[in-house]
């Protein structure tokens, strides 16, 4: 039996008592659910070697796009081209930053700029990185640097479309590797690269049809 002093406390406890949440693990469709006492442990998929290779390669890949945009700044008079360049520069610079952080956080080797469009990896199996899919050859880069005006515009747009398609190929390779691309950040990022660069490609194709838009 409750004493007189305990009674108010019991009422207070009753008012503030909240039922603990029900934690339910569903079954397959039509199958019963199971009530759990605690949520199951973290299922976070771990990153794989292919994920690391993708991020390292994409840093290398993005770095060339930034170089191409540097050329654009002084070689075109088209305003739509300048805006496109700015968008690519902002997007890819941020993405490089994000990818470097991703690699650092996971103790993976971050590619270092070796000048002249070269990138280097320090760790085991390191060395100069081979060109990534879609990257312009030295000859293509030289031709771009030598061009001006409408000739530059055409080379730039064709070159950047080629470059972007290479990024799509890299995404395909990533998702085509068993176990790769499942960690949430890389899934989101690679999906975004795919969507974003497809958009840019469409836009650049339309720009190739437009002669001059100041």
């Amino acid at each position: 039996m409750l004493s007189l002093t305990a009674l108010p406390l019991a009422i207070v406890a009753l008012i503030f008592q909240t039922a603990p949440p029900s934690i339910v693990k569903p079954g397959a469709p039509g199958q019963p659910s199971t009530t759990l006492s605690a949520p199951p442990p973290s299922p976070a998929p771990k990153h794989t070697a292919a994920d690391t290779k993708f991020m390292q390669g994409m840093i290398h890949h993005h770095a060339q796009a930034i170089e191409m945009v540097e050329l654009l700044k002084t070689r075109t008079t088209r305003k739509d081209m300048q805006l496109l360049g700015k968008k690519i520069e902002v997007s890819q610079n941020d993405e490089i930053k994000m990818m470097k952080n991703w690699l650092k956080d996971r103790g993976e080797d971050v590619p270092m700029d070796h000048g002249g469009g070269q990138m280097m990896l320090m760790g085991a199996g390191g060395g100069m990185m081979a060109p990534m899919p879609g990257m312009l050859t030295e000859k293509q880069m030289a031709a771009l640097a030598a061009a001006k005006g409408p000739a530059f515009d055409k080379l730039f747009l064709e070159g950047m479309i080629q470059h972007h398609i290479g990024a799509l190929t890299m995404v395909e390779e990533l998702f085509g590797t068993p176990g790769a691309g499942q960690e949430s950040i890389i899934f989101d990022f690679a999906s975004h690269v795919d969507a974003d660069q497809r958009m840019d490609i469409s836009r650049m194709r339309a720009m190739l049809q437009t002669k001059d838009k100041k």
Partner: peptide, 8 residues
């Protein structure tokens, strides 16, 4: 974009 040019 119509005729997409080389590399596309």
């Amino acid at each position: 974009g119509g005729n997409h040019g080389a590399g596309t």
